[in-house]
Design a protein around this nucleic acid. Sequence first.
DNA 1: GTACTCAAGTGAAACGTTTAAGTTCAGTCT
DNA 2: AGACTGAACTTAAACGTTTCACTTGAGTAC
Lengths: 339, 339
Amino acid sequence: MSSSKTKKRVTLHDVAAKAGVSIATVSYVLNNQGSVSDDVRKAVRRTAKQLGYRQNRAARAMKMGRSSILGLLVPNIENPFFATVAQSVLAESQKKGYQIFLVDTEGSHESEVKAMEGLVAQGVDGVIVFPIDDSELSATTKIPVPVVVLDSDTPDLDLVQAEYFEGGRMLAEHLISLGHKNFGVLEGPRIVSGVRARTRGFAESIADDCNIVWQEEHAFAMTLTDEAKALLDSGGITALVCGNDLIAMAAIAHYRDSGVAVPENVSVVGFDDIPFASVITPALTTVHMPIATMGKEAVNLLIRRLEAKDAPAARSRVVLDVELVVRQSTAPPDKGQKL
Amino acid sequence: MSSSKTKKRVTLHDVAAKAGVSIATVSYVLNNQGSVSDDVRKAVRRTAKQLGYRQNRAARAMKMGRSSILGLLVPNIENPFFATVAQSVLAESQKKGYQIFLVDTEGSHESEVKAMEGLVAQGVDGVIVFPIDDSELSATTKIPVPVVVLDSDTPDLDLVQAEYFEGGRMLAEHLISLGHKNFGVLEGPRIVSGVRARTRGFAESIADDCNIVWQEEHAFAMTLTDEAKALLDSGGITALVCGNDLIAMAAIAHYRDSGVAVPENVSVVGFDDIPFASVITPALTTVHMPIATMGKEAVNLLIRRLEAKDAPAARSRVVLDVELVVRQSTAPPDKGQKL
DNA sequence: GTACTCAAGTGAAACGTTTAAGTTCAGTCT
DNA sequence: AGACTGAACTTAAACGTTTCACTTGAGTAC
């Protein structure tokens, strides 16, 4: 309702006209380029501010061929792990002058591919993706913008991952040192390579006299399948290894409802160390992932590749350390095995 | 590495040339407009697909003056409440053909304003925002695109909110029916109007012989301030009312560490009913918010206003029902008051 | 046969920006 | 004095779309 009754956006033309220079000069000033005298610089900036000029990014994007927009694909933003990564990606790219298109692929590889196409059509400069199915991701390689892959293992793309195998090994070591010998494994979707790595790390690190009584694939979600519940109820194990903290929390809730005490009757471990892991009862023993760092590294990797567009630098690969965090959900098995 | 060695994007020109028609015709075909014979339609579509044509959205956005991009501002994407809203916003806008710029304002009103400006500069068609400080939001009214406000109370903007007052009332009723009389309130940031409403709903609905022993403002986070901890340790209450589920979870964890049993020694209630509320121990009594619906409604409200741009329809206001969910964190106070 | 109408398609001007190439002019070197 | 230099600024051509206004030619009504 102010003086600017006109709906029209203020353009370079308007500023140029008012300042009595050409639009080229205005453009140079506003982009801190070209050779323009200080007087004119100041004058242009003043009138620009005065008129409330806002750059039309669409026009700029079209002219320049780049949009300063990055795409971020996550399987499920409700999962705190991905939420935290998203947060760090947002913060870092904000700092670097990029906006983020967020897409939740809802765990479907199909929508992942479709989303990727959509992002490219929208003109993103690059994409950061947590792949559902990285075996098929190479097919995605044909997309015409740089891609950074998180949490996965693709041969020809830049990637950021954590020491999943090592994480699995740490869990094995910890549980064995407590005296556990019979394990149940409620792992994540095996289509995700990081999931396979952590299970492998665990399986290959248990002693000869230990055995995995059962192993079940499960979605990264807090509602357990009937199969999973049946296995939990079947007993025969003293420690449960879960694919991530969400599954671990669900398992603990199920044990609680069934009257099985954690960790007295059965120890439970997770993976990721989401913020909730330390707050729930019992506080969860898990593998701490450098979640925030992952997002930050991914953005930097991507931007580095964007800015060095022409130089086809070798593929980068950032591997981050993980850490075992022992809390209250694990204990020696001898405290009175119930099942 | 396929036949398309050329880096150049395929444009309307290319398609037109190959199909032997003008670019205008191609544009009409691809937008399902104009009068074009079926034969030509098919031919154009075929060559477009064949050449792998992708619309340049930046060019389109510039020409049309709209980008089909919506902005979503949330205070903290790590908070599952906002994550869930974001998910529903993403899903709904995806369905309607809009992309989403997500911005995490990190709880700062300053960055909220800045982000809003940035989004407008980027050319979003509209914005959905969870305001930090809605008293100052009216200042934001001068932004030149439609805005839908979530979870707040602004006089002149479209908004979606829940029955916060009623939620507070329900909690009071529930706790009083259990026999509680002395309450502690660990509320959320009072700058958020929804927070004030829920506290008011509670405070105005307790009986005359009840009293709020203490009341403390607290961030929506799981790490408690020293002040909050001190109050929790100070005793004198039989029920604790928390601003949201995150605070409730933190309080329960603190009580656990201090050897105070929930709900035997003190009942705890939250607000929001995030997915974790039903999984933690003890499962949390809370007020269920129609979180997913909020996001969906917000998108629809915004799109409706976008498409009916010229008709300055009256401000819409969607108010959603809430529901009390009684779980295990509340019980009668007489079970043996410890403090 | 003349004058319409209408479907099918084309031409070209915008949209707002960036930037290579060009112009002007004051100053400097020989 | 003449030739050159460099700073300061302008001109104008793109970028890839959309869409208004126009042409063409076939069909139809009288």
